[in-house]
Design a protein around this nucleic acid. Structure first.
Length: 105
DNA sequence: TATATGACGGACG
DNA sequence: GCGTCCGCCATAT
């Protein structure tokens, strides 16, 4: 376990942190930009390991459907929704207002 | 080494 | 638009 996982998580978090405020991105795009094309699931794993209080704006990461992947009604889903709206992102019924940020169009 | 899991993605009906 | 199935990667056990 060790450096590989740590380095990988750090890289993913760094990519997530590069998302500008008010914009959102998808797991697939983050994975691709982190050098792991197709490893969208790995991104979710990394975010799950993300400790509370970290400065990583994980709430800006959503799935390709433009929806919050966390279970509706859960604390994480609520936090993410609140933070997104706090940045000016409109969330309707768990659906994030499109216009997501892209590194490589 | 093999099996199961997950904050996913895309294809299909 | 919605629910289901298969495929993807890396970890955990």
């Amino acid at each position: 376990m060790a450096d590989t996982s740590v380095d990988l998580n750090q890289r993913i978090w760094q990519v997530v942190a590069s998302i500008p405020p008010g914009e959102v991105s998808t797991y697939g795009d983050v994975a691709r930009f982190a050098g792991l094309p197709g490893a969208a699931r790995r991104v979710g794993y990394a975010l799950r390991q993300l400790p509370p209080g970290s400065k990583v704006p994980w709430h800006r990461v959503i799935n390709s459907q433009g929806r919050i992947s966390l279970p509706a009604g859960s604390a994480g889903e609520y936090t993410q929704r609140e933070r997104l709206e706090a940045e000016g992102v409109r969330v309707c019924g768990g659906k994030v207002a499109l216009g997501r940020f892209r590194w490589q169009p």
